[in-house]
Amino acid sequence: MKKKIALVVSSPMTFKAFYKNHIEKLQEKYDVTLIANFDQPEPIFDGVKQIALNLERKPSIVSDLKALKQMIDIFKKEKFILVHSTTPKAGFITQIAGFIAGVKFRLHIFTGQVWASQSGIKRQALKKIDVAIASLATHLLADSESQVEFLIKESIPVKSKIKVLGNGSISGVDLNKFTPKESDSLKSNLNLQNKAFIFLFIGRLNKDKGIFDLIKSFEIVHSKHPEAALLIVGSDEENILPFIQNHVLYNKSIFYHEATPRPQDFMAMADVLCLPSYREGFGSVIIEAAACGTPSIGSKIYGLTDAIEDGKSGYLFQVGCTESLANKMIYSIENPEALQQASKYGMQRAEENFSDELSSKLLVNYYHLILGD
C-alpha cells in the first residue's frame, strides 16, 4: 500500500506551473492528494485526488480560521504521513493544521519572501508568518542557497533544518519546451521585425519586479541605440499598463503583450532577458530563458545570484540603480561575442544543472530520505 502524501498550495496554478513533473514522478511511489483553492471539480492531473479548500491570498481572520479548521479535519480523516506546502498562506495554514492533527512529516519550501522589500510593521507581521512556518515544519527547503543565507541571517529557521536540492529552483526547466527554436512569425506579429536588438521582460507587472526601473534604464539605452526595442510581457497587477502605454516610446521602441501561455517563443526571439526585481526566491524565468539560448541581466539580490553566473551566463547589476542596468544593457548590445558566449554557457548550465527531470529526481529522493524508503 502506497504511503499517503498531500501537496498544498493556495492557487491551483502553482501546481500547473511548478509541480506537473514532480506530481507525475511522486505518483509512481506515493498516493498523492492535491489541496488548493480549486474552482472546478475536474481534476487538473489524471488519477490524482484533489480537495478544494478556500485559501484566500490576502489575510482574512474569519476565512483563514475556517480554512484552518477544515484542513485539520482533512488531515485527521486522510491520515497523510507527509504534507508539503508551498507559498506563505498555504504554508501557514498547512503547518499549523499538520502540527495540531499530528502529521508526522511536515515539509515547506520557501520560494521567496514578500516581506523582503517591505518595511515597518507590515514587514514584521509577514516575517512572523515565516517564523511560524519554520518553527512548525519538521523539514524545510528553499529554492536557492542565497535565500537560505538570507533566511538564516533574518533568524527564520535554524541552519540544520533547511536545505536546497541540487543547485536550486523549485521545479527546474522543461528542456523539451524551452529550446532555442524561434517562431518565424512572432517578430512580425509584434511589429519587431525591424528591431536589431530586443530586450525582454516577462512576468507579473508590479513595482517589486522593477518595471519602472527597466523603462527608465531603457530610455538611456534608446538614446544611444535607437535600433533597440523593449518588449514587456505579462499580466498587469498594479495598473502599470497605462504608464507604459502613455510613454513617448510606446509602440515605437517599447512594446507590450499580455500574459502568454507560450513564454518560450518570446524568450527564443529575444536577445536578452531583463529581470530588475527587488525580490526573488530563485528566478526560474532566468533558467528558462537560458535554455532558450537567451542570456539575462538581473538585479544582484538573493535568488538571482544563484540563477545568473555574473559574466558567464548573464550579468548582474546593483538593484535599483537604473544607470547600472542601462550600462549592462548597452554592454550586451556592443559586445555580441561576449553575449554569444553567455548564451552557449547558459544553455549548457541549464541542461546540466536545472532540468525538470533532475529537479523531480532530487525531490523524490528527498521524500525517500525523509520517509525512510
Rank of each mutant, 00 (worst) to 15 (best):
T179S: 12
I100F: 05
F199Q: 04
F45E: 08
T260H: 06
G102N: 11
A125Q: 12
P59M: 08
S223E: 12
L141N: 00
A268T: 06
E149P: 02
F105C: 08
K252Y: 07
A6I: 01
S85P: 05
S183Q: 11
W115Y: 12
P336V: 04
N176E: 14
D271S: 14
A90Y: 01
K104Y: 10
F243E: 14
M347A: 07
V131S: 10
I44D: 07
P41M: 09
S360E: 04
S299G: 06
K177Q: 13
D174N: 13
D31K: 09
D184T: 14
A259P: 07
S183E: 13
K361V: 13
K187Q: 12
L140F: 01
E238N: 08
S63N: 15
Y256C: 04
E288N: 08
V131L: 13
A101V: 02
S332I: 06
M269F: 07
I93Y: 00
F266V: 04
S160C: 05
R57P: 04
A229N: 05
Q118W: 09
K159H: 06
K58C: 09
S169Y: 06
T94P: 00
C292A: 04
I330V: 14
E352W: 12
F282Q: 03
K79W: 07
D73S: 15
F282C: 02
I133W: 04
E227T: 09
L107M: 03
I162S: 10
G98P: 01
T111C: 07
L34E: 00
S253T: 15
I308S: 02
F317Q: 05
L325M: 11
H247S: 12
P41I: 01
S135Q: 14
V103I: 14
K20Y: 03
R262I: 15
S183C: 13
P43R: 05
P276M: 06
N246M: 11
C321V: 10
F45T: 04
S313D: 09
A137V: 01
A137W: 00
K69L: 12
A67C: 10
L230N: 05
I333C: 11
A289P: 08
H257C: 11
I308G: 02
H222D: 07
A134N: 04
P261D: 15
K29S: 09
D208A: 10
K195Q: 05
V32H: 01
Y19T: 00
G320F: 03
V62I: 14
